[in-house]
Amino acid sequence: MPSPFRYTTPPPPKSATGRTADVYAQLTDDFGIDRPSTFVVLSSAPELLTATWALMRESLIAGEGDRTGKELAALGVSEANRCPFCVDAHTMLLHATGDHALANTVARGETPADAEHARLLAWGRSTRTPGAPELTPLPFPRAHAPAYIGTALSFHFINRIVSALLTENLLPGNVQRLRPVRSLVGRSVAKTVRRRPSPGASLALLDDPGPGPDWARGTTVGPAYAALRTAATTGAGLLDEADRILVRETLQGWDGAHPTLAWDGLPDRSRPGARLALLAALAPYRITDEDVTAWREPVHTDHCLVHLVAYGAFAAVDRIESALPVHTLNN
């Protein structure tokens, strides 16, 4: 079977020890999927793997709110980011919630008949765009905001990792595009998806991350988000100061749009680190073999590449988070 990994060779999951093994065990128990490639691809950098899992678990899986609604938000995010792998995954997970008609509707690219479902999907799509009118009012109860926002931000990060470092094939031959396959796979994890495990289990895998942002104050989502921010931003050390400034200034002025093919602000391969980080942030699906080869010197391991992509990905997440109209939720 062809490998799903584009530029790295992650350690074999069966060889995992310590926190990596603990993450895989929690994935199996709480996500219902054994060692999914979306997380295995991060295992070259265990600190990123652990924090990414923590944010997804504490928001999408264990957080407050309806799982169907959060899957719709995650699907909307994945559509906005042009990540077909994650779009297909969340469509199958909608089957797992039991709402097969809804799953089939969104798979056809149609708007859900239920107005609340339609608003949640539109909200997820709109989180990519600062100031989008669909962001307010919130399409979920205020008490559920940390889980919904955490879900959206976790998939803004995961989408970029997936698009940069995995192939688009969720299943061999893209058979997940077939309705019977989507339904079957969804039913296989339905029991796990329809229960909500207790919050906090993943936090035991983190090293005192801090409370996190105000919008997640007092929840397990906050420390998970703080841990991912810390782990992802360490990739800045792989760039020189001029490249870090370029990434920061580009993201500050980003309006959520996908870059055109004639992207004037994208450096050429003479600045390969900045190029990779900016592509990971704004158009990870455009990363090529030549881009990776231009940057990857003998000293750059898989651990380094995963961290550089994560740095770019989180630069986009940070821009998105800062623009969301949620920073007064707990005031």
Score class of each variant (00 low, 15 high):
residue 128 R to M: 06
residue 97 T to D: 01
residue 33 I to L: 12
residue 54 A to N: 13
residue 49 L to I: 00
residue 26 Q to V: 00
residue 222 G to E: 06
residue 92 M to N: 04
residue 80 A to H: 11
residue 17 T to H: 14
residue 222 G to S: 07
residue 249 E to Q: 10
residue 36 P to M: 04
residue 107 A to S: 07
residue 236 A to D: 04
residue 51 A to I: 11
residue 322 S to N: 05
residue 15 S to I: 08
residue 296 R to I: 03
residue 98 G to A: 04
residue 45 A to Q: 01
residue 251 L to N: 14
residue 292 V to E: 03
residue 213 P to C: 00
residue 300 H to Q: 13
residue 37 S to E: 10
residue 103 A to S: 03
residue 124 G to M: 12
residue 260 T to R: 15
residue 68 T to H: 07
residue 142 R to V: 15
residue 203 L to G: 01
residue 52 T to G: 12
residue 310 A to Y: 00
residue 45 A to I: 00
residue 215 W to T: 11
residue 54 A to I: 12
residue 185 V to D: 06
residue 236 A to L: 04
residue 189 V to W: 04
residue 139 P to T: 12
residue 252 Q to L: 14
residue 329 L to S: 14
residue 139 P to I: 12
residue 87 V to C: 09
residue 257 A to V: 04
residue 309 V to T: 07
residue 280 A to E: 07
residue 117 H to M: 06
residue 207 D to R: 11
residue 245 I to S: 15
residue 249 E to F: 02
residue 202 S to W: 06
residue 322 S to T: 05
residue 38 T to K: 02
residue 37 S to A: 12
residue 268 D to M: 14
residue 287 I to L: 03
residue 141 P to D: 14
residue 136 T to G: 08
residue 169 N to I: 00
residue 275 R to T: 07
residue 185 V to H: 08
residue 120 L to E: 11
residue 218 G to Q: 13
residue 144 H to V: 12
residue 260 T to G: 15
residue 20 T to D: 10
residue 221 V to M: 05
residue 42 L to D: 00
residue 87 V to A: 09
residue 192 T to K: 05
residue 251 L to Y: 13
residue 117 H to V: 01
residue 66 D to K: 06
residue 205 L to M: 02
residue 198 S to E: 13
residue 64 E to L: 15
residue 251 L to A: 13
residue 76 G to S: 13
residue 107 A to W: 00
residue 321 E to D: 14
residue 6 R to D: 01
residue 306 V to I: 08
residue 70 K to E: 07
residue 72 L to F: 05
residue 253 G to I: 05
residue 14 K to A: 15
residue 105 T to Q: 10
residue 139 P to M: 11
residue 246 L to H: 15
residue 36 P to L: 01
residue 187 R to V: 13
residue 86 C to V: 11
residue 28 T to K: 14
residue 172 P to L: 14
residue 120 L to M: 13
residue 287 I to D: 00
residue 306 V to G: 02
residue 247 V to C: 09
residue 52 T to C: 11
residue 278 L to S: 14
residue 226 A to S: 10
residue 140 F to N: 06
residue 57 R to T: 09
residue 313 A to I: 01
residue 112 P to M: 04
residue 105 T to F: 05
residue 141 P to Y: 09
residue 196 R to L: 04
residue 297 E to L: 12
residue 182 R to A: 11
residue 232 A to C: 13
residue 250 T to A: 13
residue 24 Y to L: 14
residue 201 A to F: 02
residue 280 A to P: 08
residue 265 G to K: 02
residue 48 L to W: 12
residue 187 R to I: 10
residue 325 P to C: 02
